[in-house]
Write a protein that binds this DNA or RNA. Structure first.
Lengths: 139, 139
DNA sequence: CTCCAACCTGGAGTGCGCTCCAGGTCAAGC
DNA sequence: GCTTGACCTGGAGCGCACTCCAGGTTGGAG
């Protein structure tokens, strides 16, 4: 239910110890508990934040924006609208990202298909992707 | 059919002039033609390479790997297998990337749905995502 | 009580992929 | 011939997100 050692928090969140310390230093993760001796103790709540940060990072949100979000959350319930908007705008960017990624993935597959046809029946030159990639320097 | 000025090549490829020069400097783009005065002239072949680089960059391939690919291509037809493998391995990484991205996108959407339910009928606390994100510091 | 692995701090360093700059050259239009 | 905007080079600088380090402290096992 409660306290996790730094190494445990790192293991569970997938962030390195250094990254956890870094996130605290820049104010992304605030108010992390300590033992009397000064060692960090992460709560389930902290872990929840880390899961969120993992999600936002994996989807390409810059750290500055995550800080903004965290700050808003700390300010209280009256910032909920702004937080929602921030996430929605981010989601829109993620959608574009996914679209671009899948389009480019298709190009990549096409290129690979070209290579797979290479040792095949007819070694037809001039494939649709428009560059031969051989030693032809063409100038 | 043939020569493009640097600015035109930049416009068509979506890379900046500086990036084009940089790509040439590190040997990613080799043998770019020049006028007698020393100004670059990009061919359709060069443009084809740039389109490929665009695809690989957009899908997250590190520049070092693109260099490796370009080098292989310059070495001749006998490296076709290695090039295909390189692209296939990259494609596999892209697939993982797309999977992760769409999973995290779903988490994000869930979070947003939580915010959209906030001003709704019943302001039920304790949503499934397991962190309240309010001022509750919980320690 | 002793040990040692895990932890602490502040600050410097790293890797990537550009991006910017100064100071000079080129070439197309008038 | 002159102007002017696009271009050239080598090299420095930047922004991001960590990552590493030295030198010291903590705390649970034996």
């Amino acid at each position: 239910m409660s306290g996790y050692a730094p190494s445990e928090a790192a293991r569970r969140s997938g962030f390195s110890l250094d990254t956890l310390r870094y996130y605290e230093k820049i104010g992304l993760l605030a108010d992390v508990g300590r033992t009397t001796g000064g060692q960090r103790v992460f709560t389930d709540d902290d872990l929840g934040w880390l899961v969120l940060f993992r999600c936002l990072r994996d989807t390409g949100m810059p750290i500055a924006q995550m800080c903004r979000y965290a700050e808003l959350a700390r300010e209280g319930e009256h910032t909920a609208d702004e937080r929602r908007e921030l996430l929605q705008q981010h989601a829109a960017r993620v959608e574009e990202q996914m679209l671009l990624l899948s389009r480019q993935y298709e190009h990549l597959r096409e290129k690979i298909r070209f290579y797979e046809r290479l040792p095949g029946p007819v070694p037809e030159t001039d494939q649709p992707t428009a560059n031969r990639l051989g030693p032809a320097v063409s100038r």
